[in-house]
């Protein structure tokens, strides 16, 4: 039986902006299961990265967790004090950013990055850390001798991304959150990294959260997929179900909007309109201004998270007709 390793409940995160509060993550609840790959997919501004940063509590200063809980091993990460978080961060839950040049310090050799990262999280045995790094580098098909003694600028984009993955795994975390780790890479390098991640899963017990704007990547890698839009969880379910039978009109539209190498180009369509302003989000369902199936209730009242069979979750009035009628009568 799969059990949740992280449980997010009713999470609300706001950013303070010039025009008011940006509702970046708004009432999101989901479970991350032990040893699964959970794909989190959404466009820019959907709240997918904010969700990740909230789990690690490494949000920028302008952000605030307004409400909700993030349970991990009986710790509520949303409220835990810094001293507790320090024991969790990196050692138990780590983060792999998109490895643009600025993800690594240009003045440090890779070996120093690794040793310093470990030290910052309380692991001081330099030799053991380097041994572990060598092992990870082998697994990620990097030449340990060469890469450890290189500076970031001496490595290609794909190599740098693999180094950041190794950095994320250096303390044997239970969960690793990968935030767009293949976005800036060429097709072949992306394929290589996706295959490495699949391979890695087979070799070590680890839970992965894979964040991307490219839903096709989730089709390749994820066990379950969470679809986010404008700070809301729209749908969550098994990867095969999500693609074969998407329930939420947004998921349906998103899959249709991908220019892909399969299917007919005549069936591919953009989603009309544009994503909403998150300072003044539309009332009701946030997707309703772009939704072809929107009815009156969608414009007035926000749909709840509805549980369907097989752990499928969808936030759309179409799947709660009874309740929708009740609300309409009010």
């Amino acid at each position: 039986m799969p059990e949740p390793i992280i449980s997010v409940r009713n999470l609300v995160v706001f950013y303070r902006g010039l025009r008011g509060y940006v509702h970046a993550v708004d009432n999101v609840s989901l479970d991350i299961m032990r040893n699964e790959v959970l794909g989190v997919v959404g466009e820019s501004g959907s709240g997918k990265s904010t969700l990740a940063l909230s789990i690690l509590r490494i949000l920028p200063k302008s952000a605030r967790i307004v409400k909700g809980s993030i349970m991990f091993d009986n710790i509520d990460l949303a409220k835990a004090p810094e001293s507790t978080l320090r024991k969790v961060r990196w050692r138990r839950i780590s983060y792999v950013p998109q490895a643009a040049l600025n993800a690594l310090n240009p003045t440090l050799k890779i070996v120093d990055h690794i040793v310093e990262t470990a030290k910052a999280h309380g692991v001081r045995d330099r030799r053991a850390v380097i041994e572990k790094a060598k092992e990870l580098f082998e697994m990620l098909r990097l030449d340990p001798k060469r890469v450890l003694n290189s500076y970031p600028h001496e490595l290609s984009g794909g190599m740098r991304q693999r180094v950041t993955i190794a950095l994320g795994l250096i303390l044997d975390p239970e969960v690793v959150i990968l935030d767009e780790p293949t976005t800036a890479l060429d097709v072949l390098t992306q394929r290589f990294i996706l295959d490495l991640l699949k391979d890695l899963r087979r070799k070590i017990n680890i839970t992965m959260v894979f964040i991307t704007h490219d839903i096709a990547i989730e089709a390749d890698l994820a066990d379950r997929v969470a679809v986010m839009y404008a700070g809301k969880l729209m749908e969550l379910g098994d990867v095969y179900q999500i693609f074969k039978d998407p329930k939420h009109p947004y998921t349906q539209a998103l899959i249709r909007s991908i220019p892909s190498l399969i299917g007919s180009v005549d069936e591919m369509k953009p989603i009309p309109g544009s994503p909403p302003d998150l300072v003044n989000p539309p009332p009701g369902c946030r997707f309703h201004p772009r939704c072809p199936l929107a009815t009156d209730i969608c414009r007035r009242k926000e749909p709840p998270l509805i549980e369907l069979e097989n752990g499928r979750i969808v936030s759309c009035w179409l799947y709660a007709p009874e309740e929708a009628k009740k609300v309409e009568r009010q």
Binding site: Q190, R191, A216, I217, D220, F243, S260, L261, I262
Partner: peptide
């Protein structure tokens, strides 16, 4: 090498 939006394929 290009991922496609269909897990089976």
């Amino acid at each position: 090498a290009v991922p496609v939006p269909d897990p089976e394929i």
